[in-house]
Design a protein around this nucleic acid. Sequence first.
DNA 1: CGTAAGCCCGTTCCTTGGTACGGGATGCAA
DNA 2: TTGCATCCCGTACCAAGGAACGGGCTTACG
Lengths: 147, 147
Amino acid sequence: MTQHGLRSGQVAEAAGVSVETLRYYERPGILDDPVRTLGGHRLYPTKTVTVLKVIKAAQRLGFTLREVADLLQAGEHRHGRRPTAGLRHSLEAKLTEVEARLADLVVIRDTLREARDAGCDDVAACAASSCCPLPFAELATVPARPA
Amino acid sequence: MTQHGLRSGQVAEAAGVSVETLRYYERPGILDDPVRTLGGHRLYPTKTVTVLKVIKAAQRLGFTLREVADLLQAGEHRHGRRPTAGLRHSLEAKLTEVEARLADLVVIRDTLREARDAGCDDVAACAASSCCPLPFAELATVPARPA
DNA sequence: CGTAAGCCCGTTCCTTGGTACGGGATGCAA
DNA sequence: TTGCATCCCGTACCAAGGAACGGGCTTACG
């Protein structure tokens, strides 16, 4: 038999990421440091593929890599003793965040629709003359969350 | 009388941006190069304040600086001859984009809600055992737009 | 055993939208 | 004319999340 464990290329392929990404995730501890062959090549356990998929999924759910790392850690600690409720708490927080962004986007969408329906052609002119319902000046004064 | 035109600090103050931002916008041609005093200080026309407000508003509508520049250009070209419909087209395109992002966020929100309601505690374990409704594997296989 | 593919590492670069720094020149009012 | 606020310029830096390079070693296959 050859050595057991997956090589970085195999893991990358299976998880749909690049080999560089694996190395990158290792640095800040998002992935555990893998076992090495005598020659120094990385050997990953099979579950790393799952972990990577989870990471990618969580990123799509709007978590940053740091947050994902914490999420995974929280899960591991739980195996120690009492339930942490850390994951549920994170989910709740992220959900609130997502809902806020959603609300912002709805405002943006409605504004864009209004602008389109108004049929303006020159943004600057419209803003200056208030001939159209584009709330440029008003928007400009709003505190505003970054898009 | 002193020289007519606004100095960078005045423009920045009036538009609610920093002087550095003005310089920054000049580089890629988002702001026209202003007239200079004999000593090299920038002198802006009054309308620059409006332009800046428009830029900030457009950014809040989800346009990148590059797109904003194109939008403003489109408006100017229109003054030449026939209507370009460029702005309407851009609005339409951006609206489509925003709607797509909105749809994504709704999926994300619903997924987060499900996860929360399911009361999972360990992300990796859930993903591996399919004990909970978190669609990690499925999400992982979706082409997916970056959040 | 030979060779080609794969992997190693450190380092640099990219994107976006600015912010910060620092030394020197200017503008303006008194 | 002096003083001080303002402005000039180039450059470096920040966040995140990787992508890319290049020279050299390892591994696996035949």
